[in-house]
């Protein structure tokens, strides 16, 4: 009956149709698997991290976690009650309650206090490396795409830059250690970290800048040059402003990604722990650049693998990861907002 009832436009079973259905099914499930993985990673961090970052009482945000330095956590039993206190609080408590001075306590490093110095360190690292990478990268891109005679040499340079993007981050870390920390004798310092991170992000900045410069119509350059502008006047007034949205977005995203790397800063800029904040105890301006800092990714690494694991370390691990994720998300979002704003200003 089926054969008779079919009209000519009705679907006929065939191999092509079955493959079509299978292909759609495959692509769809691949997408969902990716979505699931992402949701799991984000979900875990957000779920576990928010236990540290948010509180159930008044300000609902664990202010201390954002504003204090890490300290050891002391867990002890006092008058039949189990108590958890940070280092300073514990000492004050003992001073107040003389009978507690000899109480048996267990201590867990870095499990109390907050991560303020790490946030500060990461922000400083990001800003400094962004400045260096943009300056060097945009200059190089302008030279490569606007000034240099296109030929084998420029192609070779481009290839080298692309290869740089494939170099593992630990190699950048070792390079930074060898060149900046040891050879230039900058020690483990902000400036060594800036240059190491900047080198790492340079391929992204240069490639993105070249692409953005290329997308500016040739007519703008010719029109400007034909009016008697020098090449640099043309680039500065009539090419770079239009390329800027693209350059900034890609570069900031690249830097946000690199800022999450632990390997390049672990030998060059990051301290496991440091009492002073970067602006404290400076005797000269140069001290600021030649000091090591704490940083979020390195802190996560330390609290996840360098200290004994227990129920208390998880709090700081996920709390730090959550905060870090939020910072990166903020940078990425603001770069996109910035692009949209600039793009609306210059449209063609």
């Amino acid at each position: 009956m089926s054969a008779l009832n079919r009209h000519i436009l009705q679907s006929q079973p065939s191999a092509a149709r079955r493959w079509e259905a299978a292909a759609v099914w495959l692509f769809r499930s691949a997408t969902y698997v990716i979505l699931l993985c992402g949701a799991l990673v984000f979900g875990t961090i957000v779920f576990k991290g928010s236990k540290t970052v948010f509180t159930t009482t008044a300000p609902f945000i664990n202010v201390a976690f954002f504003t204090e330095a890490p300290e050891s956590l002391y867990v002890f039993e006092y008058q039949g009650q189990k108590r958890e206190m940070g280092d300073r609080e514990f000492r004050a408590f003992k001073a107040q309650h003389p009978d507690a001075s000899n109480v048996k306590s267990e201590s867990y490093v870095y499990s109390a206090g907050g991560i303020f110095p790490c946030i500060v360190g990461t922000v400083l690292l990001v800003l400094g490396s962004m400045f260096i990478a943009l300056t060097l990268g945009v200059s190089a891109a302008v030279y490569l795409s606007e000034y240099a005679t296109q030929g084998r040499v420029v192609t070779a340079i481009r290839l080298a830059i692309l290869n740089l993007a494939g170099v593992p981050s630990i190699v950048f870390g070792l390079f930074g250690l060898g060149l900046f920390v040891i050879y230039l004798d900058w020690n483990v310092s902000l400036i060594a970290g800036w240059f190491t991170l900047a080198l790492m992000v340079l391929p992204v900045v240069i490639t993105a800048s070249e692409e953005s410069l290329k997308s500016v119509p040739k007519g703008f350059r010719e029109g400007s040059l034909a009016l008697g502008a020098t090449k640099w006047q043309t680039i500065r007034k009539n090419v770079l402003p239009y390329a800027l949205p693209g350059i900034l977005t890609s570069s900031i995203l690249g830097i946000a990604r690199v800022a999450g790397e632990t390997a390049p800063i672990m030998f060059t800029a990051a301290y496991v722990v440091r009492d002073k904040l970067p602006w404290e105890g400076l005797t000269s301006v140069s001290d600021f650049f030649f000091q090591g800092v704490m940083a979020l990714p390195y802190h996560i690494y330390v609290v996840s693998s360098k200290i004994p694991q227990n129920e208390y370390t998880e709090r700081v691990q996920y709390g730090t990861a959550f905060v870090f994720l939020m910072i990166v998300a903020t940078i990425a979002t603001s770069s996109i907002l910035l692009r949209n704003k600039l793009r609306n200003r210059y449209k063609w």
């Binding site: 119509p217 007519g219 703008f220 010719e222 029109g223 400007s224 040059l225 034909a226 009016l227 008697g228 502008a229 007034k237 009539n238 239009y242 210059y346 449209k347 063609w348």
Partner: peptide, 26 residues
């Protein structure tokens, strides 16, 4: 030379600036 020898192109290429800024560019 180019200040003295101006050029108008096949594809009109006003800069993505205001009319005023286009004229005053040179």
């Amino acid at each position: 030379l180019r200040k003295r020898v101006g050029m108008v192109f096949q594809k009109s290429n006003p800069f993505p600036k205001s009319i005023y800024e286009n004229i005053t560019y040179g």
